[in-house]
Nucleic acid binder design. Structure first.
Lengths: 239, 239
DNA sequence: ATTCGTCTGTGCGGTATCGAACGCATTGCT
DNA sequence: AGCAATGCGTTCGATACCGCACAGACGAAT
């Protein structure tokens, strides 16, 4: 089910030479579910390039409500804002999918940004994608019903876990979507009754990916399109 | 009411030498209400540094609903993502407050970014602020009621128009907040009955700024704090 | 085997907002 | 002066979601 030797797509974009040097400054780490990689206000010590793992960035509002503002897997990285010269986080970074990642010290990453023009360009483009997807998510949270948002979120999670089956509870989903747990249960029940998903005690399986995409709002497809358009070729006039 | 000789705060951050050279590449323009400066998918031709004017960035969802994702006045600029090497917009840029702005060609701006380290740093920090405020807005749209959001929005507009009195209709506010016009009317009526604002046919006046801040959600103050923390001194280790 | 904690399902009343429709006042145009 | 357009206010029923509460079902630990 789970593909082997998953790599990081940002690193894949780099020329072999730049990638090798970057990886030379990285160490492989195994991230565990629930691990906190950063808290708001902290100085950012390390950056992460997930390969098998993925990380939720969660915003807390009024110290009670919460909402996920980004989901970072092997298509991205944690700590990209360092490229903007700011070394603090505004949000919580929580490991949602356990697995491997490359870790590099913030200082080394900044130094690498200075040495590799290709790296800078990729990170810049990735930041742009993140902004675009954040805009999309803002609209999604405002206009789309829980069931559509849940479907979108499950698809995003499946993509980043490289599997149609993964672990996540209704409680956790509620936390990420900024709704009540009961709201998730209702939406999940609806999706299940349509045979799009199956689940039991935190073990979720996507049964019909195509139709689940249909049940999700267009934001899922829009996110994918944005990523492909900005981060994949064709390269135009340089950075 | 309206202060004279309003400048742009990003430009103000630059050393005099860099600012002068940048302004040398700019021309002053007078932006009119409703003018469209950019549409999604277009190639970005010019960047703008508003001084007296301000511009709404509006996201369209499903070609029907709409939502403002940023409000750019003399505290910011339009076209900052060029610094990320991407020259297209995802959103609509509509002039909401008429007035002056400095305009510069996208090409020249990119060239200036290469020549002025101070400029690059300021733009980078501004981008970070925009991301943070976007995250805040995403949460705001999800959790806060229309009345709070309206109060916040009026305060933001007042700040950028450098006046407690400005023109904006309920219809337009509804468009920006992503709610029905009737929803705005109800919220506005409530604020008026509390003597926080006064309005008639698109002519809005903030009567009690302090208490209006109290009526707004904390997102307004949070945005201001983020801006001051990131863009104002103290400068730390470099970009 | 029993207990306990976790995960999921259901039911109830309350509320913010929606969609649609209509009335009225002011402004601007001819 | 007359007329149309614009801006604002109100009402109606519908709906999505909320907060709270409780009940069953499964799994792990003692």
């Amino acid at each position: 089910m789970k593909r082997e030797s998953v790599t990081n797509r940002l690193l894949d974009e780099l020329p072999a030479r730049d990638r090798e040097r970057l990886l030379g400054g990285c160490e492989p780490v195994e991230l565990e579910f629930g691990e906190i990689l950063a808290e708001p206000g902290e100085i950012l010590r390390d950056v992460y390039f997930p390969t098998g793992s993925f990380v939720s960035l969660v915003l807390k509002v009024n110290n009670e409500a919460s909402l996920e503002v980004a989901l970072v897997g092997n298509e991205g990285m944690l700590g990209a804002p360092l490229a903007l010269g700011v070394n603090t986080k505004q949000v919580h970074a929580v490991v949602q999918g356990p697995g491997r990642a490359w870790r590099m010290s913030a200082a080394r990453f900044r130094s690498e940004l200075g040495s590799s023009r290709a790296l800078l360009q990729v990170i810049h483009r990735y930041l742009f994608v993140r902004v675009s997807q954040l805009e999309q998510t803002a609209g999604c949270n405002r206009f789309h019903v829980v069931e559509e948002r849940l479907a979108r979120y499950l698809l995003m999670t499946a993509d980043r876990s490289h599997s149609d089956r993964f672990r996540i509870t209704h409680e956790f989903l509620a936390y990420m979507l900024g709704v009540r747990r009961v709201g998730v249960t209702r939406a999940a029940t609806a999706l299940r009754s349509r045979k799009l998903i199956r689940y039991a005690r935190g073990d979720i399986t996507i049964l019909d990916r195509k139709r689940l995409i249909g049940a999700a709002c267009g934001c899922y497809r829009a996110d994918l399109a944005t990523y492909d358009r900005i981060l994949a070729p064709p390269r135009k006039s340089g950075d």
